[in-house]
C-alpha cells in the first residue's frame, strides 16, 4: 500500500516521557483512509505535503505505532566525518589514521605544527579518504568555532568529535605557577568544553553523533607533579558524564577513554628513571602503543557501539583497576 502525506509537524517539545524529538503526520492510503503516523527526525527539513511513502508498524511501550518513511528520500550513505583535536602526532595521529582506515573522512588539527598536521592529512589521502588540516588552538573559543565552521563547509556534517588535544606543565604543586595551572586547564579542559559546545549543535540538528574524550589514568588516580594535568583529566571525566546525560535524548553518545602510559612524545619527555619505575607498577610490564588507544576509539566510533554512553574506559595495561 502507498501512503500520501497530508500534513506533518516536527515536534520539538516531545510528549513525556519521550525525550528526543520526532515528527508526526497524517497520511492517506489509496482508498482515502487517513491515519496518524510518527516520522523519524532524520527526515526533519525534508518533509513535504503530498510525498508518498510506506508505513511500518513499530512496537513501543505504549503499543503499536505507524512509522512513515517517505519513498523519495535517499538516506545519505556517504562517509562519516570525524574531527580529532591534537592529531598531528601521538595518540591523536594514531586515531585519525585508524578512523580513516575504517572509512571516516577526517579533520586533522593542532595548535601549531602545521607541517606535521599537513603531513598526517597527506597520509590519510593516500589511504583513499578525504582529509583536511585545520590549525586551531582549542583553548580559544573563536578559533574552535572557525574550525567547526570550516569542517561543516567542507564536509557538511560532524559525526564524531574526538577531544584529544592535551599538554603538560609538570611541577610539584608548591612550584607550579598560576600560569602553568591556567594553561593546562585552558587547553585540556576548557578546550573540550569549547569543541563540544561548538560541534554539538550540528549533531543535535542531525539527531545523532558521538563524542569521545581522551582523559587519562592520572585523572582517576592522581600523579606526582601533575596537579594541573590530573585536575584537567578528572574534569574531563565529569564533563563527559554530564554531556552524556544532557544529550542522550538526541542520540548523541559521549564517552571517555582514560589511557595509561602510552609511547608518545609526552611520555618520552619523562626522565627514563621515572618511566622505569612506572613500568614496574604496570601489571603488563610495558607502555601502551598509540594504536591500542586508537583501536578502542574506532570501536566506540563504529555502529557496533550503539548503546554505550557516559562511560570511562581504561586502557592502561592494568595500572589502575
Amino acid at each position: 500500500m502507498i501512503y500520501k502525506l497530508i500534513s506533518y509537524s516536527e515536534v520539538k517539545m516531545p510528549l513525556p516521557p519521550r525525550k528526543s524529538s520526532y515528527a508526526i503526520g497524517i497520511v492517506q492510503d489509496t482508498k482515502g483512509k487517513k491515519q496518524i503516523v510518527q516520522i523519524d527526525r532524520k527526515f526533519f527539513g525534508k518533509l513535504k505535503i503530498g510525498m508518498s511513502g510506506q508505513i511500518e508498524i513499530h512496537q513501543t511501550m505504549d503499543g503499536a505505532i505507524n512509522v512513515f518513511s517517505p519513498n523519495s528520500y535517499k538516506e545519505k550513505v556517504g562517509p562519516k566525518v570525524a574531527v580529532v583535536t591534537g592529531s598531528s602526532s601521538g595518540i591523536g595521529r594514531a586515531i585519525v589514521l585508524k578512523l580513516a582506515k575504517d572509512g571516516f573522512d577526517v579533520v586533522v588539527n593542532s595548535a601549531s605544527d602545521s607541517k606535521k598536521g599537513e603531513g598526517v592529512a597527506r597520509e590519510i589521502k593516500k589511504i583513499g579518504r578525504s582529509a583536511i588540516y585545520i590549525e586551531a588552538d582549542v583553548s580559544d573559543e573563536m578559533s574552535v568555532e572557525q574550525m567547526i565552521e570550516k569542517t561543516i563547509k567542507k564536509f557538511g556534517k560532524i559525526d564524531l568529535l574526538v577531544n584529544n588535544a592535551g599538554i603538560t606543565r609538570d611541577k610539584k604543586l608548591e612550584n607550579m605557577s598560576k600560569e602553568d595551572w591556567d594553561k593546562v586547564i585552558a587547553v585540556n579542559l576548557t578546550g573540550v568544553f569549547n569543541c563540544t559546545k561548538s560541534a554539538i549543535s550540528y549533531m543535535q540538528k542531525e539527531g545523532s553523533g558521538k563524542i569521545i574524550n581522551i582523559a587519562s589514568v592520572v585523572g582517576e588516580m592522581g600523579n606526582f607533579g601533575q596537579a594541573n594535568y590530573s585536575a584537567s583529566k578528572g574534569g574531563i571525566i565529569a564533563l563527559t558524564k554530564t554531556v552524556a546525560r544532557e544529550n542522550a535524548g538526541d542520540n548523541i553518545l559521549v564517552n571517555a577513554i582514560a589511557p595509561g602510559f602510552i609511547k608518545t612524545k609526552m611520555v618520552e619527555a619523562i626522565p627514563k628513571s621515572i618511566i622505569k619505575k612506572v613500568i614496574e607498577q604496570i601489571p603488563m610490564g610495558r607502555l601502551g602503543e598509540p594504536e591500542e588507544v586508537a583501536n578502542f576509539v574506532a570501536f566506540l566510533a563504529s555502529d557496533k557501539a550503539g548503546y554505550i554512553t557516559g562511560q570511562v574506559f581504561n586502557i592502561n595495561g592494568g595500572l589502575y583497576m
Binding site: S7, S9, P14, I49, D62
Partner: peptide
C-alpha cells in the same frame, strides 16, 4: 491513538496549520 504516536496539542494544531 494520537497520544501513542506522541502527539501533543501544539502538534495537532500544527497539523492543521501546515495543511
Amino acid at each position: 491513538t494520537e497520544i501513542r504516536h506522541g502527539a501533543t496539542f501544539p502538534s495537532l494544531f500544527a497539523l492543521m496549520a501546515q495543511r
